[in-house]
Computed example of a mutant assay.
Amino acid sequence: MKKLLAEALGTFALVFAGTGAIVINEVSGGTIGHAGIAITFGLIVLAMIYTFGDVSGAHLNPAVTLAFAVARRFSWREVPGYVAAQITGALAASSVLKALFPGNATLGATLPAGAASQSFILEIVLTAILMLTILSVSTGAREKGLTAGIAIGAVIALEAMFAGPISGASMNPVRSLAPALLSGHLEHLWVYLLAPVMGALLAVPLCVGVREAGCCGGACSGARQP
């Protein structure tokens, strides 16, 4: 239960701060700016890794949890609980934002700026890069070392910085699911549910290809099941 609570709280913080930055930027006339929103996403993930990484691994993302399980770094029996906790935390965050800013139309939902297919491919590539980084700086299904949070947070901020104006740079199904449900913007939700999962799963064979044998079989770099 401590792991599930940590995942729910961490995902709540991620969605609350990240999509909250988008909402507050809109209602304040752009005072945060695109760069500020991207940095907010990176910093909140960095903070949550250091806050809950030693408890749950701070996945905060169903796509990450599924990829860890496919890589045999995480037990499949724990996946449903983790995903449920992540969804709960995200929905709670969007509910609080809706109560605070009832007039906001999207609550920070991710929406394609162009064609849905363009954002779909972009989200696959972005999530693959993110997950490849996560697999490379983690032991088992947990981040390792003092710099893991910095590396992961930096990749998220970087990708949000350059790709956010096109696809929203979600890379996380629940980060998109919660504001979409609460705001009613479901028209492109499939992009942000499917593409991050595909991208995260793509990162597993890529990691196997560049690292030593057994890297994604539970034995690489001292990998262990949590």
Rank of each mutant, 00 (worst) to 15 (best):
A69P: 02
A71Q: 05
G89Y: 10
A85I: 00
K98I: 09
F68G: 01
P112W: 07
F101W: 12
S95C: 13
G103S: 15
A84S: 13
R73Y: 03
W76P: 07
L100R: 11
L111E: 14
Y82P: 01
P112D: 15
P112F: 07
F68Y: 13
V83I: 14
L91Y: 09
N61T: 09
S94Y: 05
F74I: 07
V96C: 04
A63C: 15
L66C: 01
S94G: 12
G108S: 09
V70A: 11
V83T: 05
K98N: 13
L66D: 00
I87P: 01
A63D: 03
N104G: 15
A93G: 13
R77F: 12
A71C: 08
P112N: 11
V83H: 02
Y82M: 03
L97Y: 07
R73G: 00
V83R: 01
V64W: 08
L97S: 10
S117Q: 11
A71P: 00
L100Q: 09
P112T: 14
S75N: 09
G108D: 02
T88G: 10
A99I: 13
P112Y: 09
G108A: 06
A109R: 02
L66V: 10
V79Q: 06
G103L: 08
P80A: 07
G108L: 06
L107P: 00
A99H: 08
I87R: 01
F68A: 09
Q86R: 02
F74P: 01
V83Y: 00
V79A: 10
F101Y: 11
W76M: 09
A99Y: 12
A69V: 08
L107F: 08
T65G: 04
Q86D: 03
G103P: 04
Q86F: 04
L107E: 01
N104P: 15
Y82E: 01
L100I: 14
P102S: 05
A84F: 10
